[in-house]
């Protein structure tokens, strides 16, 4: 437990510090955030052709309403927590890599749902948008991280059971 906590906190702190570095922001975080905006637009477009993505901004051409995906809204922090948890837990490198990739996918999938929902909530009612943006979605994303980590533990257990000789 102590080992887990030590590695978890060290990885968490290190990844947070790395994420904040200017070159990392410019080369990784900002393009990734732009990609999230483009992906969200691509998912919305078949149903709503008034939406436009401009870099990190998602805009509704009809109403003029726009949301900008900023640091803290791109799901990177939640992914960092999950990665720290996965790296801190004893498992083989292959299992860790699979879990990180799958976990990152699940966190970002929910994050895209979050971005799209906020885009429409903002056009409907700004108070509701603020509530979901500032208080509810961060909790749901972190709950998603916890669920993914719990599923990872169960999956690891099953892998072990499979690997055990009869």
């Amino acid at each position: 437990m102590t080992r887990f906590l030590f590695i978890f906190c060290t990885v968490l702190g290190s990844l947070f510090a790395i994420e904040m570095l200017k070159p990392v922001q410019e080369a990784v975080i900002q393009p990734f955030t732009g990609l999230l905006a483009a992906l969200s637009t691509a998912l919305i477009l078949p149903f709503d052709d008034t939406v436009i993505a401009q870099g990190r901004i998602l805009r509704d051409a009809a109403s003029g309403f726009a949301v900008s995906i900023e640091a803290g809204c791109n799901g990177v922090e939640a992914a960092i927590v999950l990665i720290a948890g996965i790296l801190a837990f004893p498992a083989s490198l292959r299992h860790k890599l699979v879990a990180i990739l799958a976990g990152f996918f699940f966190v970002q999938a929910l994050n895209i749902v979050r971005i799209i929902s906020l885009f429409y909530l903002g056009q409907w009612n700004y108070t509701v948008f603020e509530w979901f943006h500032l208080y509810l979605w961060p909790v749901l994303i972190m709950l998603d991280v916890l669920i993914v980590f719990a599923i990872y533990l169960q999956w690891l257990g099953k892998q072990h059971a499979k690997a055990e000789p009869l």
Partner: peptide, 13 residues
Amino acid sequence: TLEADIKRASAQR
């Protein structure tokens, strides 16, 4: 329950 999951999972290395 969680502890049992952790034990099963941590046996895999």
